[in-house]
Each structure stands twice: as C-alpha cells, then as structure tokens.
Nucleic acid binder design. Structure first.
Lengths: 199, 199
DNA sequence: ACCTTTGTTTAACACTGTTAAATTATTTAA
DNA sequence: TTAAATAATTTAACAGTGTTAAACAAAGGT
C-alpha cells in the first residue's frame, strides 16, 4: 500500500522538522533555552508528540551532535582532497576544523560541551585579570632581552593558554585520553613554546 | 551595640554557607543540578532567603567563579616564587594552572564554561571517529618516512587538537581576543607543529 | 455499523527560578 | 510590662521545565 509509504514519509518529515526546530532554537536563543514545548510550538504539535520520535531531549541533542560530526567530516574530506602534499593537507584539515567551529558555532558548542551563558561577564570582575597578568608578565621576562612588542607577548600568551586550556577541556569532557599522552603533550608543548619564545 | 556585630557576623556566616552549599552541590552532582531549593535544604532555610544574600542563582555562580580565580592566582603566585629563572617560572605557572584545573575541576568548569553533561557518550556514535581518523591518518602521512609509533602520532594529534580547540573555546566564551591574534596564533602554531613533526 | 489501531491532546507530577504576601520573631518605645 | 515597629522567615503563587499516563479523536479494517 502506497499510503503506508506516504505516512512513513510524513513521519520522517516531522522527525526532520523536530531536529530543524531544535537547531533553530539553539542558534537563536542558545542551547540552555531549548525546550520541548518550544520545539512543539514550531512544528505545530504539542510536546508529548516529540517523544514518539525521540526518547528525550538529550536524544535530540545527540542527533544534532551526530549531524555536526557528519558536516565536519564532509568538509574535512573535501579540504584534504583539494591539497596535494601531506603537509598542506594536514594544515587544510585543521583550518577547516577551525572554520567549522565558527560557521557552525552552535553545533560545535553542542559537540564539545562549551557553555557560553555563565562567566561571560569579563568586565566587573577584576579577579579575572590576576592570572592573566602574571602570565603575560612572566612571558615578558623570558623575552626580556628582546624588547618584545605587546602583540608578540599577547600571541605567546594565547598560544600557551590555548593548548593548556584545550587539553584540559578535552580531558574534562572526554575521559578517554590515552595514558601518558597528557604529560607528553603538556611537557613538550610548554618546553617547545618556551624554546620558540627564546630564540 | 555588640548585638549588631553578632548579627552581622551571622549574616556573613550564612552568606558563606550558601556559597559552600552551592560548591558542594556542584562538586557532588554537577552544576546543572544546582538549584536554589537544594542550597536552602543544606543551609536549613527556605529558598527565598537566599535572595537576601544574592540577587539570583547566577550571582552565586559568579561569586564562586571569583573564588576560583583567587585560588588560582594564589597558587600561581606561590609557584612562581618557588622558581628562580624566568623560564622555569613560566613553566611552573602553566603547570600550576594545569593542576588547578583538575584539583578544582568543578570551579574550573564554572570559570571557563565547560559542560560535561552532554556529549559524554563517545561510544555508540561512530560519527565521532570520522574527523579523528582523518587527522591521525594525515599526521601519519606527514611522518611517512619516519615510521612513527602509535604513541607519537597520538601525541601530535592531541597537540594539534588541544591548541585549535582551546583557541576556539576561548573565542566562544570570551569575544575579546585581540584583533589579529587568532590568525597569528593559529597559523604559527600549525606551521610550528608541522615543522616539529617533520624534523 | 462496530471494533481496533493510530495519532494527538489534555492533565498531571515533580521539578525549576523568582516574587509578593503572610506570618512569626525580635527589637524598640512608652 | 505591654504595645508598636521592625526584621527575619516562610508559605503561596506564577510561569516555566521534562516527562508520563490517561483521555480523546480519527482512520482503518471487517
């Protein structure tokens, strides 16, 4: 019976509509504002219907996470194929990763557990500057004999901060970083950057 | 009147109790489980009195964030003073930062907007491995002539991932990264790591 | 026409942050 | 000591959340 197919197609369509609605809310209002009733509003149903398609709210976010990984993988594949040497390919892969994180900002936040809501203050909390000031001061000292520009110090500060914070974040959300890798990456990176700063 | 002082002291005490209770819940159940009524339960009051001490829930988390920065600053100060050369000091600062992120894991997550709840699946989503596989494969290719061990490839993979993800995270939660720094850090880091891989 | 299955909604439960009103306790004044 | 004023605390409520069970309506098959 063809009507069965039509109904299946309709069901698949509302499944997609649910995901689209959820992504829309995530983009417009942030993930913390995502609610089942808001999704229901957009797809013009009542909330319980969503549970016919997804086990719960988290399952919807999981599906979007999956979608994010697919989009990212596709973009990376294309980027790699556009280059000829291995080194260029590797660079292109990471540039693509970087670009994805901003063109699909909300998906990236979902995929890697980044919260934007709290601690966006920045101003109004002087304590935030304590560690930052100490680090930039220390970097300046290491570069003492070379009269570095403010921009250069800033660059090294963010280079340090990025790798340390990045490694921490990865460890916090995923506990499966292979044994010993943390120490190796951290030690080598710090030593490497200090070396690069000096010369 | 001394009774005024006693009352002020009591008020200060419950203020501290509120913060302690909030931190306890954050540590035991995660920040997403923090609620005003749970705090009230612990300090043996009802929820509305918390609003005599803090404007709202976010203000409590802000205060804990501030506390986190103070603890971190203090530890970093001590770490720096324990070293004599600028290079050693710089290294000690970052090691201290790293250690803080794990000994005060929950505070760190509050300070830098790390969500742990979602996307902790890891298993059960094969899509997650697509990008990872492409990147490690590409790294292997760049190292093609040197027969690298699995561990070495893994190290470089995490080195790359950490710095890129770290820089992205920082940009997502704080929009105040100075102009041009992103490009500089990203480009130099990628080039530097590829260089280090090759030699 | 009736029965069964499916799709959909309503109502409810146990929560959440937050506020206003009511209540209790404490301090002050007479 | 008692009465009034003030402060401390709680209760009740509102609007929202995720989720489930029951009620209802629509369609399908016999």
């Amino acid at each position: 019976m063809a009507s069965k197919d039509r109904i299946l197609r309709l069901k698949e369509e509302t499944r997609v509509n649910i995901l689209d609605a959820a992504l829309l809310i995530g983009k417009q209002e942030g993930w913390q504002a995502l609610s089942m009733r808001k999704i229901a509003d957009i797809i013009e149903y009542t909330a319980p219907i969503i549970y016919e398609y997804f086990a719960n709210k988290e399952a919807i976010m999981m599906e979007l996470t999956k979608k994010g990984y697919c989009i990212l993988a596709k973009a990376m594949k294309a980027a790699k194929e556009a280059q000829d040497t291995p080194a260029k390919q590797l660079e292109a892969l990471w540039i693509t990763y970087w670009n994805f994180a901003f063109t699909e900002k909300e998906l990236y936040q979902l995929m890697f557990g980044i919260e934007v809501n709290c601690c966006v203050f920045e101003k109004s909390i002087p304590e935030i500057e304590g560690p930052a000031n100490m680090l930039t001061a220390s970097i300046k000292e290491v570069m003492g004999n070379k009269n570095p520009t403010e921009d250069e110090v800033c660059k090294w500060y963010y280079t340090f901060w990025s790798i340390v914070h990045g490694l921490i974040s990865i460890n916090h959300v995923r506990q499966s970083v292979p044994d010993g890798i943390n120490e190796q990456v951290l030690k080598d990176a710090i030593a490497g950057i200090i070396q690069a700063i000096k010369e």
